[in-house]
Design a protein around this nucleic acid. Structure first.
Lengths: 250, 250
DNA sequence: TCGTGAATGTCGATC
DNA sequence: GATCGACGTTCACGA
């Protein structure tokens, strides 16, 4: 382990009940050092950008990440009450005697302003994380499962392409059936509603135009299941459904 | 201020570099007290439920909320790398000498397992937050703007209902034009793609069936703007577009 | 509980 | 930078 790596290894610098100016300095230093900074205290939050929002005084947990993102969490909900995405500028400073943390980005122009009337704790964490998340059960898994064994859709189905472009977007799997009819396949990893049927229909319509083909063209939705409304829509549009999950067995 | 209110007021109990058993006890106590608990350290994460995922060792910030949600954040991204929604059970315990935090819910059956090989810091925050987020610039604002002044869509447009049910779902605004033709209006707060056109088309188709009406039926998409492909789809389906934002002025 | 659609959706790929 | 579709989307609302 090199000195710089040791410097990066999990450390935490924490101050409790800091003065506003001490808090501002800690936060600014943490940002500067590329640390993950958290602030807990009583604050108000203003957001203006794609929409606008105001949040009155309350105790919240604010997280500033070295990639420029910022998250404001209350004690409820999986989602932050306010936030900014990665790539934003961050700054912490003393404003009228209080700690103020601001975030800004352009395109679109968006600003977040967190003002603390009391700071309970500020922490700066040095993060060392090289691992990547490995996930299974995705639409990609469903696609691979079908390409490995095309008969899962129906006997003698032959995939010809994936992500085949049409004038309405890319078809997940493009192939032909036992009699040579073209089949457009739309994949969904979980139970689907009307939106997925609309998507498949757009692709089939586009293929009919693109191929200016009088031959029959089949559209097939592949998912674990469909809602009643989606099934109606499928029938009305002459589209088919095959039940299949991303995971084998189970 | 009563004793219980004082207990709720923003406080933080923090331990640095705790032993695994001390960490487990702190986390368990925090959960028990209804605190917002954060843990920073080197950990691995396993998830199994709607999908499955594995995350190798790295420094992460874990937040447990009193509503049962849990968030695992790396130093990158606005989104947590792993999580559980509100309503999950939470528990912290010593497992093979390490701190292990688990979360579980039913329907669907989902589990999250965070195992720490090192705990850098544990904090328990008492949160007092009575404020609600006030937001503007939503689709609801767009609807109100139109209902206040229906001529924004076109001269002599008359709204008759909002959220009018059809066999394909609810139409945002249902009304009639100067000549008494029925108009189905779909609202979007921001620039739209092909999906919104498909949605409007489903409503118009459903109304044509529901009303078994030979009279002309208009479908109108109202949004700040549309993509090229969405505009093509609109024209192909005989649907109309009106440019309008949720916010007045600007 | 399930279905449906909004969202400051976020994120990644692709053009 | 814009578009498009997946996502363990999350979330609120209604049936």
């Amino acid at each position: 382990m090199t000195a710089s790596e040791r410097h990066r290894a999990a450390r935490a610098d924490t101050v409790v009940d800091p003065d506003p100016d001490a808090a501002a300095e800690r936060v600014a230093d943490g940002i500067e050092e590329g640390a993950l900074v958290t602030v807990f205290g009583r604050c108000t939050v203003e957001y203006d950008g794609r929409a606008s929002s105001t949040l009155g005084p309350g105790d919240r947990h604010v997280m500033l990440k070295p990639d420029g993102s910022i998250l404001v969490h209350t004690d409820e909900g999986q989602q932050p009450v306010n936030w900014q995405p990665p790539g934003c500028t961050q700054d912490a400073e003393l404003a009228d005697g209080d700690l103020r943390i601001r975030s800004h980005r352009s395109t679109p122009d968006e600003r977040l302003d967190v003002r603390f009337e009391r700071v309970t704790q500020v922490s700066a964490f040095a993060v060392d994380d090289a691992s990547e998340l490995a996930i299974t059960g995705t639409e990609e898994d469903l696609r691979e499962r079908i390409l490995d064994d095309p008969d899962l859709l129906e006997a003698d189905f032959t995939p010809l392409a994936t992500e085949r472009q049409t004038s309405a977007g890319a078809v997940d799997i493009y192939g032909e059936d036992h009699s040579g009819r073209t089949v457009a396949v739309e994949l969904k990893r979980k139970r689907v509603g009307p939106d997925a049927v609309g998507q498949l229909r757009r692709y089939v319509d586009a293929l009919e135009r693109d191929l200016h083909d009088d031959a029959e063209l089949r559209g097939m939705l592949v998912a674990p299941s469909v809602t009643d409304r989606a099934r109606e829509l499928l029938e009305r549009n002459g589209l088919e459904f095959v039940s299949l999950t991303p995971e084998t067995g189970e």
